[in-house]
């Protein structure tokens, strides 16, 4: 595949990611809308959200004006090395910014200056791996700033919360994060959680959980049980969409774990807003998309 084709396919991936929500997310929002009481502000908030999802898709315009941090994961086969991929992706990002699929969203942390094209140190955030597969797999998400600000990391034990170094303590931390967040992360939200790891790897793994589909089941039965319990309990707290009150506070909770050193026990919680923009595809060497990974 030539560089131009790769760039064009990546641009299409970015466009889709910014303007459409994946089917599992839309279904979860619809379910929340059905559940909320007739005439409640929670119900009409979710109605507006659903209308927005449709409008953004039909007009091919950004779901939300904050097009977030661009996070890109790719498995690269022998025919595509890292520099080739990164260059094509960056060119696609610049183009997507020019045509308005992405907002100018990359700011120099020292000077405050906006780079204007979404490129800069750490932007986009690449996570690249080699694969022996024949095709190239690329997944990406756009992670909004408002919801990123309500993420939280806990170091256990936490006496003030009564949280010890076990799954009960983990549950306490996660529910605390939900209450702290209220509606500020544009809920209903989705949580990605990592138990263990260090401060860096824990947060990273918590975000990778967002690539799971909302209706899947965790392979670890203990975590599967905890995920279900968190969603149920969070939705009983009455925070609701936008923090207006209601029964739909979380659309999902995905939990993973990493080993830790004996001295540390972190629980890292990432919060994703309802504008949960993720997409991905598989690309053949001839430049064809053989599969979109989320419907």
């Amino acid at each position: 595949m030539d560089a131009k084709t790769l760039e064009a396919q990546l641009l299409e991936l970015i466009r889709r990611t910014s303007t459409r929500l994946p089917g599992d997310v839309v279904r979860a929002i619809e379910k929340g809308w059905r559940r909320e009481a007739k005439g409640s502000i929670a119900k009409s908030a979710l109605r507006t959200v659903l209308d927005n999802i449709e409008l953004a898709r039909d007009k091919s315009q950004p779901m939300c004006q904050d097009t977030g941090t661009i996070i890109c994961y790719a498995d690269l086969p022998a025919w595509c090395d890292e520099p080739t991929f990164m260059k094509a992706y960056e060119r696609a990002v610049v183009k997507a910014t020019k045509v308005g699929y992405l907002r100018q969203n990359s700011v120099d942390s020292i000077t405050g200056k906006n780079s204007g094209d979404n490129l800069g140190p750490g932007n986009p955030a690449f996570h690249l791996h080699q694969t022996r597969q024949k095709s190239l797999t690329c997944r990406m998400m756009l992670k909004g700033g408002g919801c990123e600000n309500v993420g939280a990391q806990y170091s256990l034990p936490r006496a003030d919360l009564g949280a010890g170094r076990d799954l009960a303590g983990v549950r306490t931390c996660i529910l605390d994060a939900v209450v702290q967040a209220q509606g500020k992360g544009c809920g209903p939200g989705i949580l990605g959680v990592c138990i263990g790891g260090d401060r860096g790897s824990g947060y990273l793994a918590s975000k990778e959980e967002f690539f799971r589909e909302l209706d899947d089941t965790n392979e670890d039965p203990r975590l599967a049980k905890l995920e279900k319990r968190i969603v149920k309990e969070a939705n009983s707290l009455g925070i609701g969409p936008m923090g207006f009150g209601g029964a739909t506070t979380l659309l999902g909770c995905k939990i993973t774990h990493r080993n830790r050193v004996p001295a540390s026990f972190f629980v890292s919680v990432s919060y994703m807003c309802w504008a949960f923009r993720r997409d991905g595809f598989r690309l053949s060497e001839s430049g064809k998309v053989t599969r979109w990974l989320y419907d």
């Binding site: 507006t48 939300c64 909004g144």
Partner: peptide, 13 residues
Amino acid sequence: LHAIGGAAQVLAE
């Protein structure tokens, strides 16, 4: 007055 966060398209209309 709280608007719906993220509803950029509906509100733009």
